[in-house]
Design a protein around this nucleic acid. Structure first.
Lengths: 232, 232
DNA sequence: TTTTAAAAAATTGTATATAATAGGAATAAT
DNA sequence: ATTATTCCTATTATATACAATTTTTTAAAA
């Protein structure tokens, strides 16, 4: 086995189970742990230098998040991400982001509106650098701000969870720089709609944003599958 | 302590952790385990006749579901259900049920449409018996059928989870028989809209249904709070 | 060579043991 | 009487031990 990127970042004050949980989740989302791969307790315990107990507790959480699949008396394996699965997630996410932006229109206060404008500039700045990583994280920041402005904690949690399911594909709609201008325009539209408290316009903008993402991700998946097909 | 309704229903082929998980969840949702109550591992282990390990693993899942709150180095306690919290859940549920019924309009096939009609009659039959329990479960069945007709597994899972959060209040909008005619009419409207594949009409019907539920639940909560206030 | 059976190994499921820590009671000092 | 300190207890956090089950290997028979 190659060298161990799966490294537990110890946080003095976090229970081991949570450290393990985060480590494994990160591993799954980044693709370090591949779909279908078995998660064997003793191996993971040795790799991370802990006992089986925290590993098991972490797996229980991943199970509920849908990131791992339990096979009775066989153990956990990294859940397969199918195209259908991603489409389902995106379908739900579209509805929830739409809800979030509608609520934000109703509930956002002046302070947060200013914050949102700030995030918008951050995105534009990041786009100027052409660094995919910073663009992606600035974009996520912008969206998180909107969702939080909804004032609905449950919604925030769900959207963030659904977002994670697609972590691996987060670069896809950012990669080709043709789309950069489009992203800026989409953000402007969302921001302006919220500022004017125009729910319909805002919802449409949010939908368009997800549609663009979906298209990029689906293109990527089809490309991946063709590569697979060629091998097989 | 009074007698133990919290009884683990053993299923030969289910791991203990899942049995415990279901048992505890049921306990929380039915109010057997009260908000704020501490979940102490040894006690629960003794009560359910298992060791601490399955208890802990079950608690990890409840934690992620938001049904229990972890206090570091102190343990788990049953999460408090606030009015805000319920409103948040209902807000999300409204959006997701609307999405589900829209998708059902697009995707339902003849067979499932027939099934849905069957469920509708079941509800009407249950209403004739005036038994709140059977009405509630027939109603849930009807809605589940719609959600499943969306063909979106993730959506189905989320809606069912959100539904559980409000298990304790599931009778509220069924209790007063004035509303029974209204329920029948709402169901008719949903069914007909789906059959005609009229998304807008269907979505409106679904929203109305949740609105009615929300109103009933909020009335109940306010009543509960007043009782509390009187005591204090 | 293929199939079957038995044994061995690997792995999960469950229970218990040990360590660490927080909360509270008892005691001493002010 | 009040406060501070120490010790004890209850409880969680982690590790290990044991049991049950599945998978793999090996070897024998067809």
């Amino acid at each position: 086995m190659k060298e161990d990127k799966l490294q537990a970042e110890m946080d003095e004050f976090l229970p081991l189970r949570d450290v393990v949980f985060r480590t494994l989740r990160k591993g799954i989302l980044t693709g370090e742990l591949k779909p279908g791969e078995r998660l064997m307790e003793i191996h993971l315990a040795n790799r991370l230098g802990v006992s089986r107990t925290p590993i098991r507790e972490a797996i229980r959480k991943l199970e509920l998040e849908g990131l791992v699949t339990m096979i009775p008396r066989k153990g956990a394996e990294v859940a397969n991400i199918t195209e259908k699965n991603l489409k389902d997630v995106l379908e739900v996410r579209r509805a929830l982001e739409e809800l979030a932006i509608r609520l934000a229109c109703e509930r956002i206060d002046q302070e947060r509106l200013l914050e949102l404008q700030g995030k918008r500039y951050q995105v534009e700045k990041a786009i100027k650098t052409k660094d995919t990583g910073s663009i992606a994280s600035a974009d996520v920041d912008f969206h998180d701000t909107i969702v939080e402005a909804s004032g609905n904690a449950r919604l925030t949690q769900l959207v963030s969870n659904l977002g994670e399911q697609m972590y691996r594909y987060r670069f896809e709609y950012i990669k080709d720089s043709d789309r950069h201008a489009q992203i800026i325009e989409e953000h402007r539209l969302m921001y302006e709609s919220i500022r004017q408290r125009d729910q319909e316009k805002a919802a449409a903008a949010a939908r368009a944003h997800i549609d663009a993402q979906e298209e990029a991700i689906m293109r990527k998946i089809r490309r991946e599958r063709e590569e697979c097909g060629r091998k097989a």
